[in-house]
């Protein structure tokens, strides 16, 4: 085998390797999602299930503040009560109301956010409008429940927590059109 042939063999191997690594970059996406699923790190769109009967800690009160935001879509979005007091372990239902102020049908997706961050670990949601996209007809008003409980394991020094939802607009092809021009940034 002369040098030119040997060189093209190496070239071919390395090119194949490059293509594989390019594919590997994309393969990291399902891999990442799988890891998140297995470790339970990022299940925003799935309802939690209660495995055992949780004991209600009636001696303790936690104030849950409810917050609502919209991001770039003409909806009015608010909780019906701004906060609730709950016992850890107690199943609670709160209701959010959303109103489409525009004359077109809009798909929206709510993304939750918790404060303190730690709450994510102890908050179990059995039902939430954030598990699926919401389609609102022009001028439609909708009331949507969130059913949750806070596990009694929540550290003792936390007495007030905040659950916040932000609605993003989904395009017809499920894309978010974040209408922010660079000049606004």
């Amino acid at each position: 085998m002369n040098v030119t042939e040997a060189n093209s063999v190496v070239l071919r191997k390395l090119l194949i390797f490059t293509v594989i690594m390019f594919g590997f970059g994309f393969a990291l996406v399902p891999f990442y999602e799988k890891i998140c699923e297995v470790t339970g790190l990022n299940n925003l769109l799935q309802a939690d299930t209660l495995t055992e009967n949780t004991q209600v800690d009636t001696a303790r009160w936690v104030t849950v503040e409810l917050d609502a935001n919209t991001h770039g879509l003409p909806w009015q979005f608010k909780p019906l009560q701004s906060s609730v007091r709950v016992h850890p372990g107690e199943l609670t239902q709160v209701v959010y109301e959303v109103r489409n102020n525009s004359d077109r049908e809009i798909n929206g997706q709510a993304i939750p956010s918790y404060s303190p961050q730690l709450l994510g670990k102890y908050l179990k949601k059995l039902e939430c409008f954030c598990f699926s996209k919401q389609v609102l007809k022009p001028r439609e008003v909708r009331q949507m429940p969130v059913q949750f409980l806070i596990e009694p394991g929540l550290p003792d020094d936390i007495n007030t927590v905040t659950i916040s939802y932000t609605f993003f607009e989904l395009g017809n092809d499920n894309t978010v059109s974040l209408d922010i021009s660079a000049s606004q940034l």
Binding site: L28, H71, F168, L170, G171, V176
Partner: peptide, 20 residues
């Protein structure tokens, strides 16, 4: 092109970009 790899609102994850 309307994909949602990193868009939290579309089911993606911005932290995944940081990992990759």
């Amino acid at each position: 092109f309307g994909t949602n790899f990193f868009n939290a609102a579309g089911g993606g994850d911005p932290v995944m970009f940081q990992h990759i």
